[in-house]
């Protein structure tokens, strides 16, 4: 640990990146504590991937500065690369090779000798429950296996900072839980993790602090508790047996919960923002007492859409051109 363990793992000031006329990252200030998990939350095209690519030295900032583990990304990219690992949004493993060959490749590039590289690959394959598939081409792997291999490849030498770009997008719940477990173990081990996600639940489960980004800017930053306080603790979804009761149910819930009630596209469904879970239980009991039959109800966390709506007053609209597509186009045209 050189450059002082007290400096933040990531510190950016006015970080900006433009592709042609598009401001992909439009002045981002971040400070990420060492040993923590930091979540970048936002819809497609918000600038999450571009931010990660700037911090991983794949892109050069148009303006502003970024220091990673005390090193300036523009002036000392080599020093940054020695101590970070990147698990990209799109599989950053070679589909044509086997799982084992992928890890041996990375280990050799990081300077392990032949025998040592193979031993390290086998150790990681076993730890990530991939030993049975070690000799199979990655193209035959399931989404969850591919993700685990991708993360294992980032850990061949334990990085001080790991970038995980949408690590669970497209994974089934079981694989998602495995990835979360791995991230927690990593941080116990002292690694700092910067993850991007479209799911508030994921950021809430893992991250110590969360920055919500939209159109290349941070629109809110804080702990998950402070963010949720600004949005409401949760959302109550109710589905009625008879759509004809919906108006009565709306009035009743509005009175019980004191907030606006949203009528869903489903004619029998309503959604309410809930300031306090205890009142949600009371509200459900009240509908029963009033003779309104409820077939289904759930108390959930606000979705990204609801967070966005609360923070910006407009829904999270993914821009038509996905940010990575825009980045590719800018590079190739």
């Amino acid at each position: 640990m050189i450059a002082g363990a007290s400096t933040p793992a990531v510190e950016t000031v006015g970080l900006r990146k433009t592709f042609g006329a598009k401001h992909a990252v439009d002045g981002i200030d971040l400070s990420i504590r060492r040993g923590s998990i930091f979540g970048l939350l936002g819809p497609n095209g918000a600038g999450k991937t571009t931010t990660v690519r700037l911090l991983a030295t794949l892109l050069k900032p148009t303006a502003g500065t970024a220091r990673v583990l005390g090193h300036d990304v523009a002036r000392e990219p080599e020093a940054v690369r020695r101590r970070v690992s990147l698990t990209g949004q799109f599989a950053s493993v070679d589909e044509d090779l086997t799982g084992r060959e992928n890890l041996v490749l990375i280990a050799r590039l990081l300077g392990h000798g032949g025998r040592d590289a193979r031993a390290r690959a086998d150790e990681l394959l076993a730890a990530f429950d991939l030993d049975d598939a070690a000799a199979k081409q990655v193209r035959t792997y399931s989404g969850g296996m591919r993700r685990r291999l991708d993360i294992a490849a980032s850990l061949v030498t334990t990085p001080d900072l790991l970038f995980l770009d949408e690590p669970t997008t497209g994974l089934d719940p079981r694989s998602r839980n495995q990835v979360w477990e791995i991230v927690r173990l990593l941080v116990d081990n002292g690694t700092t993790v910067l993850l991007t996600t479209q799911y508030l639940e994921e950021a809430d489960q893992l991250a110590e602090r969360i920055a919500v980004i939209d159109h290349g800017r941070v629109i809110a930053e804080g702990t998950s508790a402070t963010l949720k306080a600004s949005v409401g603790t949760g959302v109550l979804h109710v589905r009625l047996a008879d759509p004809a009761d919906r108006e009565a149910a709306r009035a009743l819930l509005a009175a019980e919960l004191g907030g606006p009630i949203h009528l869903d596209a489903d004619p029998a469904a309503l959604t309410a923002t809930v300031p306090d879970p205890a009142r949600a239980a009371a509200a459900i009991a009240a509908t029963g007492a009033a003779g309104i039959r409820v077939t289904d109800f759930s108390l959930g966390q606000p979705s990204l859409d609801e967070v966005f709506f609360a923070l910006t007053g407009h829904p999270a609209e993914p821009s038509p051109d996905d940010e990575s597509a825009a980045a590719t186009a800018a590079g190739r045209s």
């Binding site: 490749l105 050799r108 300077g111 150790e123 076993a126 730890a127 791995i182 081990n189």
Partner: peptide, 30 residues
């Protein structure tokens, strides 16, 4: 599983990254 991952992440002496020739040869192997 947790213990295996923890063991795999234990800090250990890290080699110097591959030099130019050895990196090119490794990519040739790929």
């Amino acid at each position: 599983v947790g213990a295996a991952i923890r063991a795999a992440l234990k800090p250990r002496p890290q080699p110097k990254p591959a030099g130019t020739v050895s990196a090119v040869l490794t990519f040739g192997w790929r």
